[in-house]
Design a protein around this nucleic acid. Structure first.
Lengths: 338, 338
DNA sequence: CGTCAATGGGCAATCGATTACTTTCTTGTT
DNA sequence: AACAAGAAAGTAATCGATTGCCCATTGACG
């Protein structure tokens, strides 16, 4: 397959100029005469030349590439975030190097090392774990500009953009309480990262404020399967609470599925809420009430912060929590058509 | 943030040896004495040295990185494929550089150029378009080892792994015909790539064979929104066919959603099938009958083929079409609980 | 005891592009 | 007409790691 690659030297030779001139003609780093530009362009075209990005990166010590590390690319919340980031980077003329940490701090550390070794210009990360991600993230942040999104590890000197989880749970709990809910369970993840913890804390606090009794708090992982498992446990544990709030939509979808299978009618027998508003939240049976995160704004803001950090001026770390909104659907409302 | 990076020279100096020795000690390219190894390891550790991957790549002309280009990372079918590939690569000690072409041949070409410029060792791609992707994919395949997955562009000298689309549609059509379906519509994408075309062709052929009348073939894109739109058109067009087969699950989910909204009862009034068996196909209302693709096997096979192509021996291009299986759920069956 | 092979280590070329510095050639000014 | 300033192009150092080639030491073997 591989043909002997054509280098800048070949182009220079064919155009009858020096490699310096070729470089300048092609990159526009400095003006060249129209005649030479024409020559070089033609030669490069004829030879099918494309610059060796590795060599270029080594010399310039820039790759125009940003690394992104997310816990999972199967989770639609993160895919939406990734797409937003990629789009925003595109406009800044940068490429995205995407990695999945598979919710494993060890793998995450490896990805970060690899990104640093590959000399990406900056990193956007949603860390796996509030404690076990600390060392790797902190180290990486010391090597190059780094922005945390969605979740963050405390004690790392970096920017962060995410959603206001506390406010989000106020929206959820107020909505449930307004519907007359007296007891509620919360299904979340064991992961001790910022947003997971803030969601649990927010649930506790706002239920207390509104006089809603907390039935159970079940911790597992962010997946459909865990949602199924959690709902089975709730069924096994005895009388159901009035509502089940979930820390993400995948969990909620699993809960809904088990409800459908076991004949628990939602919302007649039980109210269910999710978190994230992934595209599939509107398609479930019944459609899911959830909290919408402004992913595009989060992504845009993350890229903006990173771009700022790539610039010459040092700014103090910024933390911005964007406001979420509640999306009410049938899982906490009246069934649309019976 | 950035500290002056520590280079191999610094380590060599601290350990009192040459850079050549450091390189050999750290990479194990050639044996060094235990004493020196100890010295070097300690020095590297003290200084927090990590090799500059760019420089290393330039010299070795290898990056141990594989690029992957998919039309969309929001489509769960591709995310599953990506995860499978990443997992398989991991075991081979390689990293994945993931790009999305957003179903745009121009963007796809840009991604390919960028991957080649970045000197990835090989590329795995699911091309956007059967014709408009040709030049870029063909060019890339000429530069380095390349494997096509799922879809392929004809006339490119490369390996391909995917599913047997023709067989898949036989499974679908036979299933529908066995249930007594006399008329059916097909909702697919305008994209003229191999798998899209094979699915449409398979639908036509097998419906003809089984004596099922083809009501309409609607072409749009692989998205929930297009599924919604297509179903609205079918409703507007007059009496519904007995069944609607869809070229992917996202389309089918959109179709089901509009059915729910407009009171069309599935499967009583209409049978609906999808394609891919994404995780959300089991969660819809009603759960979706669909074709399961063996994504893990596709991913594993793609990596295996690429690894082979990276080796010294040239093998003729391989094409392997793996067998899909039908997953029957309520959208073509009896409603589980009324 | 001399020679040869094996072993460990260093020197310097190399990968390919960029760029500081220098040279050459115009052009404009007085 | 002489000289300064500016534009265009070339020369060669450089980015940081790897590796071909060579040298020195050591031990084995005849």
């Amino acid at each position: 397959m591989t043909v002997g690659r054509v280098t800048i030297r070949d182009v220079a030779e064919r155009a009858g100029v020096s490699t310096a001139t070729v470089s300048r003609a092609l990159s526009g780093a400095r003006p060249v005469s129209p005649a030479v530009l024409e020559q070089v362009t033609r030669a490069a075209g004829d030879l099918g030349y494309s610059a060796n990005g590795i060599a270029s990166a080594l010399r310039r010590s820039r790759t125009d590439t940003v690394g992104m590390v997310v816990p999972s690319i199967a989770n639609p919340f993160f895919t939406a975030l990734v797409e937003g980031v990629e789009h925003a980077l595109q406009q800044a003329g940068r490429q995205l190097f995407l990695c999945s940490s598979r919710s494993d701090p060890a793998l995450e550390a490896q990805r970060l090392r690899s990104l640093v070794a590959r000399q990406v210009d900056g990193i956007i990360i949603s860390p796996v774990h509030g404690v076990r991600s600390h060392d790797a993230v902190s180290w990486a942040a010391g090597q190059l500009p780094l922005v945390q999104v969605d979740r963050y590890v405390a004690g790392v000197d970096s920017d962060w953009v995410g959603v206001d989880d506390h406010l989000a749970l106020r929206l959820v709990v107020d909505h449930l309480a307004d519907l007359g809910v007296r007891t509620a369970a919360f299904v979340s993840s064991t992961l001790t990262n910022s947003s997971t913890e803030l969601r649990v804390a927010g649930f506790q606090e706002h239920t207390a404020r509104r006089g809603v009794a907390v039935d159970q708090v079940l911790l597992g992982e962010y997946s459909i399967d865990w949602g199924r498992e959690a709902m089975r446990r709730l069924l096994a544990a005895g009388p159901l609470p009035d509502a089940v709030a979930c820390a993400d939509d995948l969990i909620a979808l699993g809960v809904l599925q088990v409800c459908a299978e076991t004949g628990v009618s939602v919302p007649a027998d039980l109210l269910v809420t999710g978190f994230d508003d992934i595209p599939y939240a509107a398609l479930s049976d019944p459609p899911l009430t959830t909290v919408r995160q402004p992913q595009d704004r989060i992504a845009g803001e993350a890229v903006r912060l990173l771009s700022a950090a790539l610039g010459p001026d040092r700014a103090p770390p910024a933390r911005s929590a964007l406001a979420p909104s509640l999306v009410v659907r049938s899982s906490t409302g009246i069934t649309p058509s019976g």
